[in-house]
């Protein structure tokens, strides 16, 4: 879905806005998730997230989504899974050192971030991936954290 992924990055601002509406909605539904039980919701939510984000971003389900900070280009598609910017091996045509047929994920991310309202987030240093969260729904974990912060509420 290489083409879709490019298209999304070109329209990063739209997707940024969409997510900005989507996240509070999910957080509002916290009582519902809590009632159903986060553990029980995990599997269907994961499936939906995988489907949607897989189609749009070639999401690799790292479980700690940073798309809003990376111009809507998924950094896990970088063959070195870099989370903080391009390596020094980018080709002069902007393509990847490891996969010459692919445009560098971070060249895309930079372009995408330039269109976004909060593109400056690309300058924030990202923590390394927590491998325990691989394959889990990052939407749910964001919602859970956000709800906890809002309510001071134990899940």
């Amino acid at each position: 879905m290489y083409k879709v992924r490019h298209w999304v990055v070109r329209h990063s601002r739209v997707f940024e806005s969409l997510y900005r509406c989507f996240e509070p909605l999910l957080v509002k539904l916290h009582p519902l998730w809590k009632r159903l039980g986060y553990a029980r919701v995990e599997a269907p939510m994961r499936a939906v997230e995988k489907g949607v984000k897989g189609l749009l971003f070639d999401c690799q389900m790292c479980g700690q989504c940073v798309l809003s900070s990376t111009g809507m280009a998924c950094p896990m598609n970088c063959p070195k899974t870099l989370r903080n910017g391009p390596c020094g091996g980018v080709r002069s045509d902007g393509h990847c050192e490891v996969k010459p047929e692919m445009k560098c994920v971070w060249v895309e991310a930079w372009a995408g971030s330039q269109n976004m309202r909060h593109g400056e987030r690309i300058h924030v240093v990202q923590q390394p991936v927590d491998y325990r969260l691989r394959g889990s729904s990052s939407w749910l974990s964001v919602v859970r954290e956000q709800a906890q912060r809002n309510n001071g509420d134990e899940q």
């Binding site: 091996g89 980018v90 080709r91 045509d93 971070w106 060249v107 930079w110 300058h123 240093v125």
Partner: peptide, 21 residues
């Protein structure tokens, strides 16, 4: 740092990010 490969206009910012790190 590699100032000589794309994305050129990001390279100085990326350096700043490394300094921050």
């Amino acid at each position: 740092e590699n100032p000589f490969v794309p994305p050129y206009d990001w390279r100085p910012h990326r350096l700043a990010k490394k300094v921050a790190a």
